[in-house]
Design a protein around this nucleic acid. Sequence first.
RNA 1: GUCCCCAUCGUCUAGCCUGGCCUAGGACAUUGCCCUUUCAAGGCAGUAACACGGGUUCAAAUCCCGUUGGGGACACCA
Length: 498
Amino acid sequence: MEALLRCTRIFTAWYRCPSDSQRDHNVMSQVRVRFAPSPTGFLHIGGVRTALFNWLFARQQQGAFILRIEDTDQSRSTDESIQAILEGMKWVGLDWDEGPYRQTERMDLYRAHAMTLLETGHAYWCVCTAEELEARRKDAEAKGLSPRYDGRCRQRGITHPTETAALRFKAPQDGQIVVDDLIKGTITFDNSAVDDLIILRSNGYPTYNFSVVVDDALMHITHVVRGDDHLTNTPRQIPIFEALGFPVPQFGHLPMILGSDKARLSKRHGATSIMAYKDMGYLPEAMVNYLVRLGWSHGDQELFTRQELIDKFSWKSVQSSAAVFNPDKLLWINAEYIKTSPPSSVAKALVPLLEQAGLKQQVEAVSEEWLAQLVVLVKERAKTLVDMVEWVRPYFGQVAQFEEEAAKKFLTPAIAPVLQKLLTRFEAFPSFSKQVWEESFKKLVEEEGIKMGQLAQPVRVALTGRTASPGLFEVMEVLGRERTLFRLRQGIEHASIG
RNA sequence: GUCCCCAUCGUCUAGCCUGGCCUAGGACAUUGCCCUUUCAAGGCAGUAACACGGGUUCAAAUCCCGUUGGGGACACCA
């Protein structure tokens, strides 16, 4: 069964299925969803969230998740954008079962279906030019009217189109379209509000509203789940499915993501590209967790593993209202993932950032195990991997880089003799032991009649160069005996000079 | 302008469908305290919301209508 489901997921592998009847049954009942971005820029977080909901549903239903690139606007689509989309999808771990299909590779399909509509009387040629249309639209708007196409070519019955003619769909003019939306519930549209939309441009390219329908139908999409901004496209698309004789899929419209000013999220709200979050040191799992929770919930639970997400996901618990993107909460979730993810995997994600920060050689000189140990040392403190780079920096290399202020305040001639005593005691121990060294440290503090902090801070600065760090003895453990002693000497030297 | 969607703490949300258990729960942020060798983390406590107005009902955050507010769509863009 498992193998069968897997194989029906992939079109090209159909022939491997054991039995045709079984296969047909599976295809008929199988959930098939898609993510269909247009390659006109980077992959933004709103798109990722849409993809995520589709992906979750597909995985839960053991259905197929299809990636389709909607690039019929040849003037705005770029190959770089396609690469950016694929890169982003891979980073957040949204694997697709089919595709990526590109609409520009399917032109014949759209044209053929457009011709079918023409032949069946569901479409007609329109010779109004773009300029005329634009002028009429402006005119209508100025008069406070709806800027819709007036349908003047509808009755012309043009059979021999000019070079510049476009093909329009003959939309139903009366009655209603009722959409039973997975998320919003029942929505009713009057057909009188819908005009005859162009399905084939004068350059022969299909328009969005037509190519989506053809593709969704031909790809046997069962659930069309997309952004809220497509809601009003739905009553325009349903009649096309019907005119073409295709079954109408189920629709679901996800609420938008808003910026802090409640306006649609855009560049001016800061980073919206998913890859920007990678660069800022976010973990993909944290992004996924945050994005899903933005608009979906499961009781009071905040943190979910990916499997939990798949198991617990439901359209019923998807919010119907828009949500404001909250960077603070995302940061918190990221910190949670940094704290709870396996240190070795965090370390792995950290390496590229370390290299970018100019620590390439130092990183190459250490083991993966030590790096993981380093992650454990600082994971409670770092909210992002970028943060972590700074937290971790003092532990590379032989010498400590003293922060000027810190050294000035704590590495003073007054403390130098005490540090010297500590060093002498530590040197007497043949190997490092957290308990033993800490005990020895506390004993010295007691003997000197000073407070912990009076010795701890100078030692901290000596070892790390800074006034803030993880626990001293954890630091020593990561540094190792030799480097600890070396840096202590270095600190004493600095303190003696004052 | 027309059409569509939406409306619980500052933010994400539970509760709404199937009215009473809600003197509205959780989380982020924020404030205070505790812990403490620093910085974090952690623990405890606090501030803070049913947009408004009408109904329906013994009873409404929950159902209905309206108002207001926000968002989206009205392209030979997707």
